[in-house]
Design a protein around this nucleic acid. Sequence first.
DNA 1: CTTTTAAATATAAACGCTTACACCTATATG
DNA 2: CATATAGGTGTAAGCGTTTATATTTAAAAG
Lengths: 341, 341
Amino acid sequence: MAVTIKDVAKKAGVAPSTVSRVIADSPRISTDTKKRVRKAMKELGYHPNVNARNLAVRSSKAIGVIMPSSAETALQNPFFPEVLRGVGTVAHDTEYSLYVSTGGNDQQLYEEVKRMVYGHRVDGIILLYSRMNDAIMDFLVEEKFPFVVVGKPYENESSITYVDNDNVSASKELTKHLIDFGHKNIAFIGGTTDLVVTSDRFEGYKQALIESGIKVREDYIINDEFNRSSGKKAVEKLLKLKNPPTAMVISDDMMSLGVINMLEEFGLDCPEDVSITSFNNLYLSEITRPPLTTVDIQIYKLGIQGAKCLIEQLQTKDEPAKRVIVPYAIKYRSSTKRFEP
Amino acid sequence: MAVTIKDVAKKAGVAPSTVSRVIADSPRISTDTKKRVRKAMKELGYHPNVNARNLAVRSSKAIGVIMPSSAETALQNPFFPEVLRGVGTVAHDTEYSLYVSTGGNDQQLYEEVKRMVYGHRVDGIILLYSRMNDAIMDFLVEEKFPFVVVGKPYENESSITYVDNDNVSASKELTKHLIDFGHKNIAFIGGTTDLVVTSDRFEGYKQALIESGIKVREDYIINDEFNRSSGKKAVEKLLKLKNPPTAMVISDDMMSLGVINMLEEFGLDCPEDVSITSFNNLYLSEITRPPLTTVDIQIYKLGIQGAKCLIEQLQTKDEPAKRVIVPYAIKYRSSTKRFEP
DNA sequence: CTTTTAAATATAAACGCTTACACCTATATG
DNA sequence: CATATAGGTGTAAGCGTTTATATTTAAAAG
């Protein structure tokens, strides 16, 4: 049906193997023959069949990108497109293709990863999240399948390549900033507790409080999904307290957006009544009212670095596990304010 | 190395073909044998090799998603993740995999599409944009390769399956709304002129003006990329006019955001001084100040429908070209106001 | 004018699967 | 009792590559 390597061979008057070598630009083929074969390829409009090639060489020149279960909801947070953008850039430069997960729930996602791995659909995987006791990560280490994670692995930290920010430091700095502004009642609104990023950011928050002699209050800690409605719900809860917080460190800009919205519904102003600090520096963080003081974690770079690490790992056998920390930068904007009782 | 169909066959005491039939759940195999074979597969941890399978059946059970050249910038507009989300949902339900483009420029994107098509990487393609004289679209029709476009094809409209909104109608309605509010100096800020969506929306704008006896002014028409800075630049230009517009119909929420920002920099208020209407209903359109009056084009549904059409096309030979128009809904918010000189 | 050696190309065996066809067995049919 | 029929499996030929090994050719060496 389509034109194959044999057709080219016939036309050029050589053996299929020769054509194959020409494709690979093997030095064993004389420049003369190469020219002839290339001409034949052009004329016939030949293009190699990737499936056949992949089968023969047992690789696919593709990398799988795994977003948290239900890319469906994941894609609603600009974080993922943005890291995807980074990954895509290097994939493109290195001529790798991109396979993205579509899994609806944990189980389906797991199946999908298995399909990718066992089916030889991809040569390596980038995990765009990290949480504790993740079946997928366990599976990958178990299978010794090449992968890198964007975020910090919950376990086997030293044997897994990953790219991350120094989240505890960032969170600590943020919290300190609030404390410096005279706040004492500082709430923490983080992602779900299974995420490593959640515990890291909580850790930083906690350290800051403790170092300043402020006690950590259970009822000031809220954990939920990274989206707007979680932010709203969090505010509802916090404002019900007898002693509501005057400041919050929030783990995600989308959440922060929800927080601002809900504060407004309660007739409270940010930063007048409540100061908030946030994470991610999504472009929306500049356009909220007020613009968010948030940490720029350089999402795009996370994607770039993640992809780079993976591809290095794929190309050089026995590449050691490495860790790359991309630096963060706190963007001070106007969502925080000195506490005035 | 990995466990193959032969290993399973041996273990189950049957021929490879039988195993293959069990995988396909062929009715020709007795339930007894099926049970036995399945057990063997389980025990050996067998998983079919997709490449081999694809090679044999000449298909890949994957669909390619093509974003405008440089997914890099494309991904910065939430439109794309959102339609990707829709596509992903049905891909997942139908067990197709998703291949996304990473192309940096037009040429590279074209090469990538060729790789996908010729290399049998994907069975079909979804084009997430439509513009005139697009080499990629031409290529796909030339090759008779299955594809659908999200947007309206520039030519061969009747023979290409596509899903779109009624953009001229939406745009007309928007413009009318502005006119009803007493505006006469209405500018149009659209995407680049090569995009079909741009001309459609311009058409609606024009019709509304003409029907109301308002003349279309050249200097009120601006075309640029769908992003924030284009919006800003547009405002700069428009405000330089001796007779600046009092209202604008803008083709994209990101642009609108830029417009609002720049108006503010000029000390102008929206909607007090300038009314704007927008397109897409990205979630950000609710959080801008003011919230945007924008048309909800149901991006997610566009993705769903696009993917559905493609998969139908793939599964049933000779599926006729179809057109699906996803209904839009104008979200009236507060970025427009009655004109008061 | 043989014999070596190196360069260039061809042969053929994978890679792991699907599927048309052939083959058997056991039952139904004439 | 020979024969047709159908259900269940096996055989083997692809699918389009890559690549180890073999073969041819030509130049260099003896």
